[in-house]
Design a protein around this nucleic acid. Sequence first.
DNA 1: CATGAATGAGACTTCATTCAT
DNA 2: GATGAATGAAGTCTCATTCAT
Lengths: 207, 207, 207, 207
Amino acid sequence: MTPRIVDKEAKRKQILEAALSVFARKGIHDFRMIEIAKAANVGKGTLYEYFPSKDELIVGCFSLFMSRFNHHVTNQLSGVTDPVEKIKKLISATFEFYLTDRALFDTIFDFYAAGIPHRDGKSLLTELTPMYTDMIEWVSVVIDDGVSQGLFRPTDSKVAASSILALLDGLFFQLALGVISVDSVDYANRISSNLLNGFLDRTNVNP
Amino acid sequence: MTPRIVDKEAKRKQILEAALSVFARKGIHDFRMIEIAKAANVGKGTLYEYFPSKDELIVGCFSLFMSRFNHHVTNQLSGVTDPVEKIKKLISATFEFYLTDRALFDTIFDFYAAGIPHRDGKSLLTELTPMYTDMIEWVSVVIDDGVSQGLFRPTDSKVAASSILALLDGLFFQLALGVISVDSVDYANRISSNLLNGFLDRTNVNP
Amino acid sequence: MTPRIVDKEAKRKQILEAALSVFARKGIHDFRMIEIAKAANVGKGTLYEYFPSKDELIVGCFSLFMSRFNHHVTNQLSGVTDPVEKIKKLISATFEFYLTDRALFDTIFDFYAAGIPHRDGKSLLTELTPMYTDMIEWVSVVIDDGVSQGLFRPTDSKVAASSILALLDGLFFQLALGVISVDSVDYANRISSNLLNGFLDRTNVNP
Amino acid sequence: MTPRIVDKEAKRKQILEAALSVFARKGIHDFRMIEIAKAANVGKGTLYEYFPSKDELIVGCFSLFMSRFNHHVTNQLSGVTDPVEKIKKLISATFEFYLTDRALFDTIFDFYAAGIPHRDGKSLLTELTPMYTDMIEWVSVVIDDGVSQGLFRPTDSKVAASSILALLDGLFFQLALGVISVDSVDYANRISSNLLNGFLDRTNVNP
DNA sequence: CATGAATGAGACTTCATTCAT
DNA sequence: GATGAATGAAGTCTCATTCAT
């Protein structure tokens, strides 16, 4: 409520935005704190007021990134109740989100790589695994719904959910790599169809 | 006249193996040259005799990694002519390869992230994109074969190939992340089935 | 808002002084940055704040050295108008300057050697040649003045100027080498006489 | 007498020549032993057979350089008995020698700088000072001869000798620096005249 | 005897982090 | 609170020198 707190939060965002823009250009492994500070128009000392270490800045960025993604998808899905539509919408919303910001989009794979555990026990982004688990869970519930409504062919919903998300990640990777290209969200629809053909009862998919 | 004779190629391999083992523990962004040297049982200077820079060492490792993968898959596919079997074998061979060396397996995502272009124009692993393109091409040719033999439902083979590889990458990512687990190659078969259901003519897949 | 206030220029000088004192002991080819840092009572990092590389530190020292020399000579010559006196004063001022700081004085020959061009096209101290050219020009103008005033025998003023400076450099070299010694500025006067005997009209030199 | 010894001496020369050619390009402070080895067409180990350290190689080169210079001047002076001619010949021979090999010629100033004592007590080329002292001595004897023959005006022969050599060194430095240029040995004659005007009895110089 | 592969001490330079102002 | 000057730990890379063959 106090203006102080609002300012703090705003400056934090400002720094995070700056960081994300730097990450887009240099990845999360080859940037300097001073670059972020300059991009955010704050001093190095101020940066450390908000993020006590380089790692925490990266983690903060990842959180911002994921929360944005969640917001976007949640918005797109609000009001959608049909399981088939939910899956389709998830796919198209994900495409939309990534295509919104190509530069930032490349950063996701740095985040992904940084989220993988072990490498000596430590992982930078410990939040990735639980977040991903939640996503799989959410999708699998949707599929279970669809199955019980007779829309989907009975299947292992966990495997199906995992496969759907895997396919999406894999495709985004190929996009980032430049081996495939996509000019519009239309691509998502073709993928959806092919994908859903595998899990859904075709009679429902292609009426 | 006759200087010390050494098998340069063998020592190079030895260093690369050591590097790979270090990468497995620490990733490709947080290791020190001295660690590799120690792991390879050579002096720091020797390391630089074989790899003039840290980056070139990483690139060398990536090349070794990819060439091994190619060898493994090529071996597994030798003698296989049926398009459906080829796809199935590609999937199972890929699973096999990754499961062979869990530690190394985590490194792949560092390589993947490092292979994505732009980030200021430069990319560490410039070879990844052409390699990936070749793989898509290879799979798409197999699919075209299958289609012309009436084994697969007519489809855009490039999209199908891309999707198959995307799914595999995505699943391996989830494995590395720990959100799914796989104890044997059996998992591959379930994926194969689901996947092929999407692209193949079902009458052929489930006779 | 108000960051630490430091006199950057003063600290720069402080570092340069320290560097010069180190150079006097070790020359410009066999010193370590850490030595300069310690001598200047700053951290190694601070050194690099002010001089981005070893070479730039050397260049900075050379500039300081030359600007000091110029100041000294300029001061000594202020008010002197007679061409003969100017030459004499130049010589004595130069002696004075060098004898002021024996240690630093030895460094000059490292600077001189480092200022010679080519050696693969690059030269560390690119400023030396233009500075030297200016000095020759200045002396030659004085000589021309002297000639037109009938004080000097007509002569090629460029050759004469070059010779005077050459003689001085050569003598200082011998001093540094230790093959001649000089206890006072008196030596300069004897040299002056001999030298001027060669270029001046004797009737004017020894009235 | 044994061919062994001849071979040894020949290879030593070969290495020294190679070193000199490298020095001409890079100076004596910025070369690598491997460069010399390659230029001399020998292995690095062989290099160390002949010169147990980098410093000793530099010293060896300097010795070769100086002995060549001495040979050249001695040859030119053989048969010359007149003191005035001796001085003139010394000057012209020195010019000749330097102009013979412009590249190597630049190296001399590295040698000169490296020959200056103190810098922490140690000097790389300890031979320079005694050599230079000998040269001054030689010239001063010639001048004394000239004086006693009534050819030169009575003068402090040490100072005169020192001045003559200083002037020569200073001029060569200017040549190396590029602030003066000289296309032929003629330049030497003009310098000789001006110089001798200062020390000699003019009635003898310009008959 | 010649060679060049191997080595590791050592030097430059970077940059995350601190903290006086 | 904000700043950026100061710092030194740490890491890459070089290269003189050694020595097995």
